[in-house]
């Protein structure tokens, strides 16, 4: 969030468990973060499970990144 305040586009990869925390923190800092939510957990996953998470996260990130670049 500090990066966004400094003008850097900084999408946050957040697991679902940590989403309320990130939202609360963002509200307290008065910023609107760009968030890509990944199902919890990430630690302890095997390769195939991790690949699924990467696929889902990339699916959400690419349009978000295109939009940020397009509106810059």
């Amino acid at each position: 969030m500090e990066l966004e305040k400094r003008g850097v586009v900084a999408p946050l990869l957040v697991t679902s468990t940590f989403l309320p925390l990130v939202e609360a923190q963002a509200k307290a800092r008065r910023v609107t973060p760009r968030v890509v939510v990944v199902p919890h957990p990430v630690g302890g996953l095997n390769e195939a499970e991790l690949a699924e998470r990467i696929e889902a996260a990339a699916g959400a990130l690419l349009p978000l990144a295109d939009e940020a670049r397009g509106s810059a």
Partner: peptide
């Protein structure tokens, strides 16, 4: 918390930074 020097460096050098938060 992230080191201030690292944040300084990232914000000067990069346009976009993808950040992993929590698990």
């Amino acid at each position: 918390a992230a080191d201030k020097d690292v944040i300084d460096w990232l914000s000067q050098r990069y346009k976009m930074v993808l950040v992993a938060v929590g698990d």
